[in-house]
Structures are given as structure tokens and as C-alpha cells.
Simulated assay, not measured.
Amino acid sequence: MPLNSINTNSGALIALQNLNSTNTELGMVQQRINTGKKVGNAKDNGAIWAMSKNQSANSQALNSVKDSLQRGQSTIDVALAAGDTITDLLGKMKEKALAASDTSLNTASFNALKADFTSLRDQITKAADNAKFNGVSLADGKTTKMTFLANTDGSGFTVNAKTLGLAGIGLSAGSTFTTATLAKAVLTQIDNAIGTATNKLASLGTSSTGLDTHLTFVGKLQDSLDAGVGNLVDADLAKESAKLQSLQTKQQLGVQALSIANQSSSSILSLFR
């Protein structure tokens, strides 16, 4: 037979313990719903929390990688734009040299073609020198290569520079003609320059494609890391919502159970009537 005591109410103590347990669970569920995370700090699950922090740090570090790769893309794009201009100029120079090789031209016409040729030649130098992004050029011959970030470990993606100025394509500041015969001879130089320029642009284009591919990979890698972190720490809100309703009901029942247990002591009074 259980002891009837006004000092110790075992039923109330048990009911209180159960209610406290329910309140603790309810607080955890409410926190998960408020934050959207099942692991919000190291107290929730130390191992999972540490893992998620490491992966989050890697994901954030990839932003720097993406910035570097995008800067590389822009630098190459500027060089390619200059290269397109230079090949167009070479095409016009070939046109002028070919026209000047016509021996039937009078002196005025020949000199006009020569002046046009010289002007086009000088524009090549300007295009190569001005092909800069963020103060750096892959086309002016002052840089041999550039290395951009490729991963969070500091490894790099190297792009070799291509000199697109006159010296880089086999011409010089003195490339010109003074007679129809020399104009015809210049045509071979221009053809060689066009071939050299297009080959260098093709190499830069390949490097640009490589950067594009790696940038796409880095974006997918970052998305995968973010998704992995979400799988580790994000709460299933539908599940937590259902659990919240269950615990709220359990809490109400616990309060009632504690109230009933507390009333049991009052039955002792009937013994003294």
C-alpha cells in the first residue's frame, strides 16, 4: 500500500518530471521551427555542427575562386576583343598594300594608300597597348602569364599571355612600302601576321573556354556543398510542425496530470473529519 504523506507526493514528482521533459522537447522543436535548423549550435550535435561549419567555410571560400576566375574571363575577353580589332586592321592593311601594288596608280593615289597603310599599322599598337582589364593585359607583351585561383587550396589556373603588338605578329613600326614592288612584297608579311595573330587568338580562346568550364564546375561544387550542409543541419519543418502539435497536446495532458497528482494530498483531510 502506498504511503499517504503530505511531505512527499511521489505521483506529483513523477508528473513534474514528465512535464519538464515535455517542455524541454517542446523548446527544442520551437527552436528548430524558429531557426529552420535541427543543428543550430555545437550543443545540439557537436560532430554534425563541426562538419557543417567546415563545409560552409569551403563553400564561402569558393566565392573568392569564382571572383578570380571571372576576373580572368574579363581579362581574356578584353585581349580577344583587341585581337579581333587587330585582325580586322591587318585585313585592311592587306587591302591597302594590294591596291598599292598596282603599277598603274599615279603618285597621289599611291601616297594616299601608303598613308592609310601606315595609319592602320599604328592602330595595331594602340589596340594591343589598350587591351587592359584592371590594369593588366594579356596582349601587350608586358606580361608572360597570369594565374587565377582554381580551388580553395590556393591552386591556380594559368593563362599564357600572347603578344599581339606589331613585334608579336612579325611586323615592326617601320613596316611600310615606298614602291609598288615593295607593296607587293609586304603582302607576304601581312599574310604571315594574320596567321600568327589568329593562332594566338585561338590559344587565348581555348584558355577562355577552360576558365568558363572550370567556373561552371566551381558553381556546381558550391551548390553541392551548400546542399550537403543543408542536409546536415536543416530541419524538416513539416515533421517539426507535426511534432509541435503532439508535444503541445502532451504538455496540456502533463499539466492536468500534475494537477490531479497535487490534489491527492487533499484526500488525507477526509481522515480527520
Score class of each variant (00 low, 15 high):
residue 136 V to Y: 14
residue 201 L to T: 11
residue 134 N to M: 12
residue 189 Q to K: 12
residue 205 G to A: 14
residue 150 A to N: 05
residue 199 N to F: 08
residue 218 V to Q: 06
residue 235 A to N: 09
residue 186 V to Y: 09
residue 153 D to Q: 11
residue 197 A to C: 13
residue 188 T to Y: 07
residue 176 T to L: 01
residue 237 L to G: 11
residue 231 N to M: 11
residue 181 T to S: 03
residue 176 T to I: 03
residue 182 L to P: 00
residue 165 G to F: 05
residue 216 T to I: 01
residue 207 S to I: 07
residue 223 D to A: 15
residue 142 K to R: 10
residue 203 S to V: 09
residue 227 A to P: 01
residue 225 L to G: 06
residue 134 N to A: 15
residue 160 N to I: 15
residue 177 F to A: 00
residue 186 V to S: 09
residue 143 T to F: 08
residue 153 D to L: 05
residue 205 G to F: 08
residue 185 A to P: 02
residue 163 T to V: 07
residue 244 L to Y: 04
residue 180 A to L: 00
residue 177 F to Y: 02
residue 237 L to F: 10
residue 217 F to E: 06
residue 192 N to W: 03
residue 189 Q to P: 02
residue 184 K to I: 01
residue 208 S to V: 04
residue 206 T to R: 14
residue 135 G to R: 07
residue 239 K to Y: 13
residue 220 K to G: 05
residue 235 A to S: 14
residue 178 T to Y: 04
residue 133 F to A: 12
residue 189 Q to D: 14
residue 185 A to N: 11
residue 214 H to D: 01
residue 184 K to V: 00
residue 173 A to Q: 12
residue 137 S to M: 15
residue 151 N to I: 09
residue 202 A to I: 05
residue 157 F to S: 05
residue 173 A to T: 12
residue 155 S to W: 02
residue 142 K to Q: 11
residue 151 N to F: 14
residue 168 G to S: 04
residue 198 T to K: 12
residue 215 L to M: 03
residue 245 Q to D: 12
residue 172 S to T: 15
residue 221 L to F: 07
residue 193 A to T: 10
residue 235 A to C: 04
residue 189 Q to F: 03
residue 237 L to P: 10
residue 170 G to S: 08
residue 150 A to C: 01
residue 217 F to D: 05
residue 200 K to H: 05
residue 186 V to N: 03
residue 152 T to Y: 05
residue 150 A to K: 15
residue 238 A to R: 13
residue 199 N to H: 08
residue 181 T to F: 00
residue 135 G to F: 07
residue 158 T to N: 04
residue 163 T to C: 02
residue 195 G to I: 08
residue 172 S to Y: 03
residue 142 K to H: 07
residue 230 G to E: 10
residue 154 G to N: 04
residue 153 D to E: 08
residue 205 G to R: 11
residue 170 G to F: 04
residue 228 G to A: 04
residue 216 T to Q: 04
residue 178 T to C: 02
residue 163 T to W: 09
residue 140 D to N: 15
residue 150 A to S: 09
residue 244 L to G: 02
residue 202 A to L: 06
residue 180 A to P: 00
residue 164 L to Y: 03
residue 244 L to A: 03
residue 229 V to F: 13
residue 242 A to W: 04
residue 144 T to C: 06
residue 242 A to N: 11
residue 204 L to T: 09
residue 133 F to E: 14
residue 186 V to P: 02
residue 179 T to Q: 02
residue 245 Q to W: 01
residue 157 F to Y: 15
residue 136 V to D: 14
residue 177 F to P: 00
residue 225 L to M: 08
residue 203 S to G: 04
residue 236 D to L: 09
residue 199 N to R: 14
residue 179 T to I: 02
residue 182 L to F: 00
residue 180 A to F: 00
residue 144 T to M: 08
residue 245 Q to V: 09
residue 230 G to Q: 08
residue 200 K to T: 02
residue 178 T to D: 14
residue 161 A to D: 09
residue 223 D to W: 10
residue 210 G to T: 03
residue 238 A to I: 15
residue 169 I to R: 04
residue 227 A to H: 02
residue 242 A to Y: 03
residue 152 T to D: 12
residue 157 F to L: 14
